[in-house]
Design a protein around this nucleic acid. Structure first.
Lengths: 222, 222
DNA sequence: GTCTATATCCTGATAGAC
DNA sequence: GTCTATCAGGATATAGAC
């Protein structure tokens, strides 16, 4: 019987090892720059394995995302539901709505300890793979719609178009932050700062975005 | 004498046509997916032209950015300077600081009418080209530092680490918005909304971010 | 400076033995 | 299911005529 902990050489099925390796390499080096040879080598599998198990690199890419995104989005909607139920008649505070949206992406306690997918998730909103955008946004768009409605209820004075834009800004801030966690380069704010936990960063982001959403519309018109 | 307007077939030097074509294609299809063949064909030049004028694809890429980034960053610092001078003794409002940072990227009146570079600029913060990040952030990091100091003066109660993070969020919102202007897919908020001008989007972003920066630190601690 | 033609390499994908 | 060996295509880059 193999050991239970999910370390490297413990070898679940080849299929799973390929997914893990691809997830890691996609996050680390970007999707376009990652080759099947790197993936199979890192997974301890043969070059032909990708084609046997998935048929093509693109299908592999889709599977990498499908494996993680669905739980995250379900978690988002479940948290939103709970936040709205807990609030009773009143609409819940924006902080809670935003936290319901952001927490699943930041924490990812579900399915796997590693945080490779966090950066990959940031990449998903970011890379111009065309193909990928459709897959990601297919499920994502529906979730965004639910949250924009929730925010509209919480902030009834905001025009819908403003809410759409602010959500866009929020997603951008989230994606950029996720994509740059542990990334090299001077973009990460904390090189000298003591390392923040994910929860602290999340709280910092929530309070920033919540204040942005609460801004009265039109306060900075030209 | 050729016509003055910068339309397609008017042909400045081959070198400039190559830069323009590369800028356009990089913005449209991403950097990794753009080939030298596409660039030279689009520029009406020969495949060998890139190598003759630039030596390699990477140098071409760097030149594409260097041509635009420096003016943008100089513009940012100049606007920041003016904002701070106009404010006299008091620190200027955050809105003005943010606007000084964002306007040059959003408007780009300087050097060229086309807005291809706007999306490319979004991509620059986004694509994991490794190589590119260094080039971009080399100058960019200095500019960010100036603005973070300006914000620290405007909002003296904020701890520096919080300012760093909020700047990170702001850059993410900016980059994401720039990268997705005119992009396909459901990520753009305005499919049914009437088309906003760049100035309107800019104002919407400024008021959102300013409110975020003004949020008291620690208001959303866990 | 610009072209044609080509060298060299690496990619994703496949055929077929085991 | 996994391997070896290889294909066909496209990438960057270069050599050398004009």
């Amino acid at each position: 019987m193999p050991r239970a902990e999910p370390s490297e050489a413990v070898s679940p099925d080849t299929r799973t090892r390929l997914l893990d390796a691809a997830e890691h390499l996609f996050a680390e080096n970007g999707i376009a720059r990652t080759t099947l040879r790197q993936i199979t080598a890192s997974a301890g599998a043969n070059l032909a394995a990708v084609n046997y198990h998935f048929g093509s690199k693109r299908v592999l890419l889709h599977e990498v995302f499908a494996r993680r995104i669905q739980p995250v989005n379900e978690d988002r909607l479940a948290r939103l539901d709970r936040v709205e139920r807990d609030a009773g008649d009143e609409p819940p505070p924006v902080e809670d709505i935003l936290r319901a949206f952001l927490t699943p992406a930041f924490l990812m306690k579900s399915s796997g300890t590693r945080h490779d997918f966090l950066r990959l998730m940031g990449r998903a909103h970011t890379e111009p793979t065309g193909e990928l955008r459709e897959v990601v946004f297919a499920q994502f768009g529906e979730v965004v719609l639910c949250f924009s409605h929730a925010i509209a209820r919480a902030l009834p004075k905001l025009p819908p178009s403003i809410i759409q834009w602010r959500l866009q800004f929020a997603i951008g801030a989230m994606a950029f932050t996720l994509a740059n966690r542990d990334a090299p380069g001077p973009s990460g704010p904390s090189r000298h700062t003591d390392a923040e936990t994910d929860e602290e960063v999340l709280s910092t982001l929530v309070e920033f975005l919540a204040a942005g959403f609460r801004a009265p519309a039109g306060s900075a018109e030209a």
